[in-house]
Computed example of a mutant assay.
Amino acid sequence: MEDTFLSLLCRTWMWDPNHWCKIKFKADGTGELICRVEFNLYVAAEFDWQPQPGSPALDRTINLAADQALLAEYNLELTLTKRRIPSLGSTSTEGALINESHLTDAAFVPKNYTVRLEKGRFPVSRNVSVWANWWYGLRIVFDKSPFPSIEEWKGDAVRTVEGNKFYDRVDFYDQELEVTERED
């Protein structure tokens, strides 16, 4: 099976090994954005996405065996919706104060992004200790965060957002690599 940008994009990309903040693209032009801290869930929303005119074809073959860090770069439009993800594992989101409870209407307008798909050895700290890193082989990097900007949050969530800086998170990872010895 050949890898394409679409097949590589359509997986769950996480920001942290705790799986608190992640983004998932689906081939049907929808996706999921999750933003939480420990037991506090702020966003569990679906989004709509599409390539912008002039971007390469989504079914263009990507050679994962190539010795290059940048595999592809695409311009995408993402529109966060108020549609909630029905459940996160065994936890239902029904009745939860998420999405529009914490976000202004400005968070739900279409936004344009440049997304780079990269391969390599990327360390992601879990903040358990100074040396505790998880390593990943694939990364997508947005030119700006897919999480709403600080101005698009409201209420009590603003303080948490300022402390965790979700709006600065532009890199997401997949393909955990096995680490046989301590890497710094």
Score class of each variant (00 low, 15 high):
23 I>A: 03
89 G>Y: 07
46 E>W: 09
5 F>V: 14
169 R>W: 15
104 T>K: 14
111 K>S: 09
72 A>Y: 07
96 A>K: 15
94 E>H: 10
172 F>M: 04
97 L>N: 13
71 L>G: 05
44 A>D: 09
101 S>R: 04
75 N>C: 11
140 I>Q: 01
174 D>Y: 04
139 R>E: 07
131 W>N: 11
1 M>S: 10
19 H>R: 15
169 R>G: 03
50 Q>A: 11
148 P>N: 05
88 L>T: 00
27 A>F: 08
156 D>V: 11
99 N>H: 03
47 F>S: 04
20 W>V: 02
14 M>P: 00
127 N>C: 09
143 D>P: 15
150 I>S: 03
63 N>R: 09
8 L>D: 02
115 V>Y: 01
149 S>C: 07
43 V>T: 07
131 W>C: 11
27 A>P: 01
58 L>T: 06
171 D>A: 13
112 N>T: 12
63 N>W: 02
87 S>K: 12
163 G>Q: 14
157 A>D: 09
9 L>R: 02
144 K>M: 11
136 Y>E: 08
158 V>Y: 02
100 E>W: 00
161 V>H: 04
120 G>Q: 05
176 E>L: 13
157 A>C: 08
110 P>M: 07
183 E>Y: 10
4 T>I: 08
47 F>Y: 10
9 L>P: 00
33 L>Q: 06
4 T>Q: 01
69 A>C: 13
133 N>F: 14
171 D>H: 08
80 L>D: 02
87 S>W: 03
52 Q>C: 13
28 D>Y: 02
166 F>W: 15
30 T>N: 04
68 Q>N: 13
107 A>Y: 05
46 E>C: 11
140 I>V: 14
62 I>S: 01
123 P>R: 06
129 S>Y: 07
162 E>D: 05
81 T>D: 08
147 F>D: 01
131 W>T: 15
17 P>S: 05
20 W>N: 13
72 A>H: 06
165 K>V: 04
103 L>E: 05
53 P>S: 07
25 F>T: 01
167 Y>R: 09
124 V>A: 06
151 E>R: 11
118 E>Y: 00
180 T>V: 12
83 R>Y: 04
175 Q>G: 00
152 E>F: 02
136 Y>N: 04
170 V>G: 05
8 L>C: 01
134 W>K: 12
40 N>E: 15
140 I>G: 01
177 L>R: 10
73 E>H: 06
65 A>R: 05
179 V>H: 00
112 N>K: 13
53 P>R: 03
161 V>F: 04
181 E>Q: 13
58 L>D: 02
14 M>A: 09
128 V>F: 12
182 R>I: 14
169 R>T: 02
11 R>T: 14
78 L>D: 05
3 D>I: 07
152 E>K: 08
110 P>S: 05
9 L>K: 02
56 P>H: 03
118 E>F: 00
175 Q>R: 12
175 Q>F: 11
86 P>R: 06
21 C>M: 13
62 I>G: 00
97 L>D: 15
145 S>P: 10
120 G>K: 01
184 D>V: 10
11 R>H: 10
142 F>H: 03
142 F>C: 03
152 E>G: 01
146 P>H: 03
56 P>M: 02
164 N>E: 14
121 R>N: 04
57 A>S: 12
136 Y>T: 04
24 K>F: 04
113 Y>W: 09
117 L>S: 02
39 F>Y: 15
83 R>Q: 11
56 P>I: 03
132 A>F: 12
